[in-house]
Design a protein around this nucleic acid. Structure first.
Lengths: 251, 251
DNA sequence: CGCGCATTTGATTTCACTCAAGTGGTGTGG
DNA sequence: CCACACCACTTGAGTGAAATCAAATGCGCG
C-alpha cells in the first residue's frame, strides 16, 4: 500500500516541529486543490486554522457514522475509505470509495447528519474540516466557495454513474477506469492498481454478486484486458477497457 | 394538468402590471425557499434582480442542452421537466424528473457545462437564476449560500437512490412515493397523481423495459396498491407502497 | 372511419443470482 | 517447519426476474 501514500511531486516546505496544522497542510489534498485554484497565501492561512489532521485509522474503523450530527467534511490524505449504509436485512451496501485527495462527507449537508458510514479499508489519514467554519470562510473567499460548489456538483454526477443498467463487464471496466483516472489525477500509476477493497466490497458497490465479480474478472483476464493477482490489477488493454466503460462513464 | 400549477396557499401580494420580476417572485418556489430560511426582505430584493421568468415551454422543448455552457440554474414554476442524456446508440436515457418548486441545473457547476438536456414534458414555466451572480450574492447572504449547499447535497443523495439493485416493484413504488411526497411538500394532493411523463420515460428512468413498467403497474393494480387510468394514478394502499419503497428510499 | 402511436399482453431468451462445492493463501500453534 | 483452520475467493450447476421479440389492443386525432 506504499504506493498509495500521498507524495506530491512539488517541493514541500521545511517541516516545523511544533505539530501545527500548517506543517502538514502543504501535503493536504484539499488545501492543494484550493491553492491550485489561485487562493492567495493569507487565505490559505485562514483555511489552515480550521484543519485538523486525524488518524491513523485502521481497517474497519468507522470514521463517520450514519445518523451522526454533521460537523465536518474530510479529505483523504492516505489510504482508502468506503461509504456504506445498512439495509433492512442488516446487510451492508457500499455507496462509494474515496481515494487519497478526495473529499468525503459532502452529502451530509442536506440533512445535517451523515447519511452513511465512512469506513477505513486500510490505514487511513484524514484532514478534517469543520464545515460551519468552512462555510463562513467560503463567504469571504470566492475561490473556496466555487471549489465547494464544484465538489458538490461533481458528486451529483458521480452518484448518477452507477445508476444505469449496464452489463457486469461494463460496470467492472468503468470501475477500474474510474479508479485509474483518479489515481492518475493524483500522480499515481494508472495502469498498475493496488486496490484496498475486497471482492465483496467491489461486488457490493457494483451491485453484483461476489461470484459475478469473480467471473467477470476471469473473463476480462482471459480476454487479455487485465491481469489480476489478488488485489493487484494491471490494466493491459486500456483502449478495450475504455471502450467497455464508455457507455457508463460517458466521456 | 391544472392540478400541477403552482398555487401557494399563502396570500399573494397584489400583482403589479409592469411585469417586473417581483410580481411573480412571491410565487417563485426558489425565492420562497430562501424566504423560509429567514432571509430578510432587502436580501430578497437582491435575489430578485437576478431572476428571470422564462417560458412557457411546450412538450419536447429543450430548455438546457447537454454540452452548453453553464450560465444559470432554474426553478420549475409550473409543469414538469426531465433531464436526459443520449447514449452511444442515440437512445435517450432519463436521469430525473423535476416538479414545480424544484431546482434544475446544479449538476452543471462541476464542468461548467450542462451534463444533460433539460426537456419540458408539458407546458413549463421557469425562474432562471444567473449562477455567477447568484454565487456572488451567496457570499453576502449566508442563508443563500447554505441553501445552495443544501440543494446540492440533496441532489447527491437523490442521485444515489436509483442506484441500488431493487426489484421492478420496489423501484416503481419508490418512484410513486417519491413523487407523492414531493407533491405533498408543495401542497398538492399526494394520493391522486397526474403524471406528465409517458410510460417510456418512466421505464427509461427506472432502468426497466416499457413492457416491464406495464406489467408492474398491472401487478400493483391487481394487488390493490394503486389504481391507474392512463396518466392518472391513485395511491390506494399507501402503507403497502411505502413498505415496498422503504428499502429504496431508506426512511 | 382509419391511421399512427403509446401501451398492453404473450412467449421465449438471457444475464446475473443463488446454492453448493472446491481452491488457495495466510496465519497460528504444535 | 509443517499441519491445520479460517477466510476470501473461485468455479460449477441450476434458477429466476426482467429483457427481448412479437403481436394485439386501445386511444387520439385528422
Amino acid at each position: 500500500m506504499a504506493g498509495m501514500t500521498y507524495t506530491p511531486t512539488r517541493k514541500q516546505p521545511a517541516p516545523a516541529d511544533d505539530g501545527d496544522a500548517l506543517r502538514f497542510c502543504s501535503t493536504c489534498a484539499f488545501s492543494q486543490a484550493c491553492l491550485s485554484e489561485g487562493l492567495d497565501k493569507s487565505a490559505l492561512m485562514d483555511l489552515h486554522v480550521l484543519v485538523e489532521h486525524i488518524g491513523p485509522f485502521h481497517e474497519g474503523d468507522v470514521i463517520f457514522r450514519e445518523g451522526d450530527e454533521f460537523k465536518a467534511i474530510a479529505a483523504v490524505r492516505a489510504g482508502t475509505v468506503k461509504t456504506t449504509v445498512l439495509d433492512d436485512n442488516g446487510d451492508e451496501q457500499v455507496l462509494g470509495f474515496f481515494l487519497p485527495g478526495e473529499v468525503v462527507g459532502l452529502n451530509a449537508i442536506h440533512q445535517n447528519r451523515y447519511p452513511c458510514n465512512v469506513v477505513a479499508l486500510d490505514t487511513v489519514m484524514l484532514c478534517r474540516f469543520s464545515f460551519p467554519k468552512m462555510a463562513l470562510l467560503a463567504a469571504k473567499m470566492p475561490g473556496l466557495q466555487a471549489h465547494l460548489f464544484r465538489l458538490l456538483s461533481q458528486d451529483i454526477n458521480k452518484a448518477a454513474l452507477l445508476a444505469g443498467d449496464y452489463s457486469a463487464e461494463q460496470r467492472m471496466a468503468a470501475f477500474l477506469i474510474s479508479i485509474a483516472r483518479r489515481y492518475a489525477a493524483r500522480g499515481f500509476s494508472s495502469s498498475e492498481l493496488l486496490l484496498a477493497m475486497s471482492r465483496t466490497d467491489m461486488a457490493n458497490y457494483l451491485r453484483l454478486a461476489p461470484e459475478t465479480v469473480s467471473r467477470v474478472l476471469r473473463r476480462l483476464q482471459d480476454g487479455g484486458l487485465i491481469a489480476v493477482d489478488r488485489r493487484e490489477f494491471s490494466l493491459r488493454d486500456r483502449p478495450a477497457l475504455e471502450a467497455l466503460a464508455k457507455p457508463v462513464l460517458r466521456d
